[in-house]
């Protein structure tokens, strides 16, 4: 066998191993990625599955525990909100009227039991309107100020 063919064989082995590992990794880690509205629409089908859902926290729904290890809120949807209950470390800038991505399990009736919340890194490429920023985070900030000491 020529050196070129041996190299091709080695390349195929590397590619094969990579694809196999990619398959294993994908099988173990894939999730449906839904908007709050899609989640509500397919709640019956998706009940019990792990999902990642994106949406905007509805005004007047965010409640953060004094220890800041639990949060409950609703993600805005067309007619009714999608309820979310999260446990674990919460992001600093978690506030109403900001976009979040929640990772967790969908329970019935439509409730996402989240274990991870991601917020978009503020003003990386587009600043928010001043009024929204302050009004949104003030509630949370005041709560935290009360609970720090």
């Amino acid at each position: 066998m020529s050196s070129g063919k041996k190299l091709a064989a080695a390349g195929l082995v590397v590619a094969g191993a990579t694809f196999y590992m990619a398959y294993l990794g994908a099988s173990a880690s894939w999730q449906y990625y839904l908007t709050a509205e899609e989640c509500l629409a397919d709640a019956a089908d998706l009940a019990g599955s792990r999902i990642r859902v994106s949406g905007r926290i509805a005004t007047g729904t965010l409640v953060i525990s004094p220890r800041r290890d639990q949060a409950e809120f609703a993600l805005e949807a067309a007619d009714r909100g999608l309820k979310v209950s999260c446990q674990g470390t919460l992001p600093d800038n978690l506030a109403e009227q900001i976009d979040v991505v929640v990772e967790g399990k969908l329970e019935t009736p439509a409730l996402v039991r989240g274990d991870k919340v991601l917020t978009r890194c503020a003003s990386k490429y587009e600043s928010r309107h001043k009024g929204e920023t302050r009004a949104g985070s003030a509630t949370v900030a005041q709560r935290r100020q009360e609970t720090l000491r």
């Binding site: 990579t18 590992m21 990619a22 990794g25 894939w30 449906y32």
Partner: peptide, 15 residues
């Protein structure tokens, strides 16, 4: 339906 892959997917290929 949209599907997202977790960090395990990338890490398994990184090995």
């Amino acid at each position: 339906r949209r599907i997202v892959l977790g960090p395990e997917f990338y890490n398994s290929v990184l090995i």
